[in-house]
Computed example of a mutant assay.
Amino acid sequence: MRDYEIVPDAEVIGWRGACTCGWRGMMWIRVGSAVEEDLPRRRAYIPSSGFSDPSASVEEAIEGEWRAHVMPLKLVDEVRAAAREYASAGERLTDSVAEAKAGGATWAEIGAAVGITRQAAQERWKNARYPLR
């Protein structure tokens, strides 16, 4: 099953971008002559030749609209990935602190290693347990 529709050249009235999320860009109108073409107003002339592919400039504009649409989603994915890395680093830090404490390190040494006071280190990790491996 195709995820697109083939329309005869003579029936194509314009083009627009679309996304699998349901987003649809603004319509680019196909005009009947080069004189009517006005790209700033989204009016493009494509002569009838059996294929109704938009010009490179129209394709680039449509792709730009789609990229603007997906950019926030991409950026949120980056935030999600960073949050996973942050959580993983936090777990690794807690395990390292517990291991250092079990190995005889003082709270002052641990605090200095992470840039906080002895008291802050002890308060933050006093319940950390060295993981059994």
Score class of each variant (00 low, 15 high):
Ser55Met: 11
Arg133Tyr: 10
Arg43Cys: 03
Glu59Ile: 09
Arg42Pro: 01
Glu5Lys: 15
Arg124Gly: 00
Val97Lys: 00
Pro72Thr: 02
Ile62Asp: 10
Thr20His: 15
Glu91Ile: 12
Ala87Leu: 12
Trp23Gly: 07
Arg30Ala: 00
Ala68Trp: 06
Glu99Thr: 10
Arg41Asp: 13
Pro47Glu: 15
Asp77Ser: 14
Arg118Gly: 06
Pro40Arg: 04
Gly32Met: 04
Tyr4Asn: 13
Val58Phe: 06
Trp15Cys: 00
Val79Phe: 07
Ala68Ser: 14
Ala113Arg: 04
Leu93Phe: 05
Ala128Ile: 09
Met71Glu: 13
Ala82Lys: 14
Arg84Met: 09
Cys19Glu: 08
Ala68Cys: 12
Met27Val: 04
Gly115Phe: 05
Trp107Arg: 03
Ile116Thr: 08
Gly115Ile: 08
Lys101Gln: 05
Glu78Ser: 11
Ala34Glu: 11
Tyr86Glu: 15
Asp38Glu: 10
Glu59Gln: 13
Ala83Pro: 00
Val114Glu: 05
Pro47Ser: 15
Asp9Gln: 00
Glu85Ala: 15
Glu65Arg: 07
Ala120Trp: 03
Ser88Leu: 07
Gly90Tyr: 02
Glu85Val: 04
Glu65Lys: 04
Ser96Arg: 08
Val114Ile: 15
Asp38Ser: 08
Ser55Gly: 14
Ala102Asn: 12
Leu93Ala: 12
Glu11Met: 06
Leu39Tyr: 14
Asn127Ala: 10
Gln119Cys: 11
Val114Asp: 06
Trp66Asn: 02
Arg2Tyr: 06
Met27Ala: 06
Met1Phe: 12
Val58Thr: 09
Ala100Gln: 05
Glu36Thr: 04
Met26Ala: 15
Ala56Ile: 15
Ala102Ser: 15
Ala128Arg: 01
Pro72Ala: 03
Arg30Tyr: 03
Gly32Pro: 01
Asp38Thr: 01
Ala105Asn: 05
Met1His: 12
Arg129Leu: 09
Ala102Val: 03
Arg80Ala: 15
Thr94Pro: 01
Ala98Asn: 06
Ser48Cys: 07
Gln119Phe: 15
Lys74Asn: 11
Pro40Thr: 06
Thr20Gln: 15
Ala120Leu: 04
Gly104Pro: 07
Ala100Leu: 13
Ala121Glu: 00
Asp53Gln: 10
Trp23Asp: 08
Ile13Ala: 12
Arg133Ala: 13
Asp9Ala: 09
Pro47Lys: 13
Ala121Phe: 00
Ser96Ile: 04
Ile46Gln: 02
Thr94Asp: 04
Trp66Tyr: 14
His69Arg: 09
Glu123Arg: 10
Gly64Asp: 08
Ile110Trp: 01
Ala113Leu: 06
Pro54Leu: 10
Asp38Gly: 02
Val35Phe: 10
Gln122Thr: 00
Ala18Leu: 01
Tyr86Ala: 15
